[in-house]
Amino acid sequence: MLELRNLRRSFGDVVALDGLSFEVAPGELCGFLGPNGAGKTTAMRCAVGVTAADAGEVRWRGQPIDLAVRRRTGYMPEERGLYPRMRVHEQLVYVARLRDVDAEVAARNADRWIDRLGIGERRDDPVEQLSLGNQQRVQLAAALVHDPELLILDEPFSGLDPLATDVMSEVLREQADAGVAVVFSSHQLDLVEDLCRTVAVVARGRLVLDGEVAALKAAGGRRLRVATDGDDDWTARLPAGAAVVSRRDATVTVALPPTLDPGAVLDVARRSGRLVDVHLDQPRLSELFRTAVADRPDLAAELTEVDR
């Protein structure tokens, strides 16, 4: 289990982490979400030891994270980081060797990931000669080449084309299936919704929402879209707890509390006319995200552009 416990970190007057806590279990694929400046990058850097927390701690399998654990961690920094003039294969071997992987194993792993990520033709080219997308593949390979048991990736999907996005998603899911604890930050909420079983949402250094995506969506209340061929004055007689979210022509969208049976709303609507269209939706992750951040306007208003 990766545990971030009550992490605090300030940069001058800017509070980046304000008592952040969450957990990621082995085999879990966790999306780490938050607006710009929420503290995602700082939290991840604390987890890999690149930034020291002012207070709080990060544990892996019950132990504070030390050098030995960091060497078994795969990390993809936000700004990316590779030696521009070093060749792809050589660079991957070097990164693995620094993490105490035997030279032969490192060479084999490097080749395996180069092939898997489709950059075989660039194996012996300097990294700076690769396209940005391919550099990102090398960066991912650098996080994986030592067979880590913990993967911490800062915006791994940013800048990828749809095909590369598919490959990245597939690799992350495979890693989680193999028992690796994977946490990655992203602003692509739909992608996270499809890919991750759990999410953690952070705003101004604090956790504002976390848990399994399915449970969050179920708990977040459903939306019922109803269209009738009669008047829409039935909405005045809605059962307690239900509320109109929007109206467009004859179509009304109603938010339902988790306990309310949608049939009760339909019964009311049917009294004003024949049902023309009915649609029951769970909320999208993006809606949950917006609600979670907006529910704390005190935080949302103060978000800075500094995402350290």
């Binding site: 890999v48 690149v50 700004e79 990316r80 030696y83 620094l98 993490r99």
Partner: peptide, 17 residues
């Protein structure tokens, strides 16, 4: 400067004192 500028240093200090 190359290591700082390319940020590869983050990858290094994660694994090396």
């Amino acid at each position: 400067i190359e290591e700082k500028g390319s940020r590869v240093v983050e990858l290094l200090v994660e694994a090396v004192p």
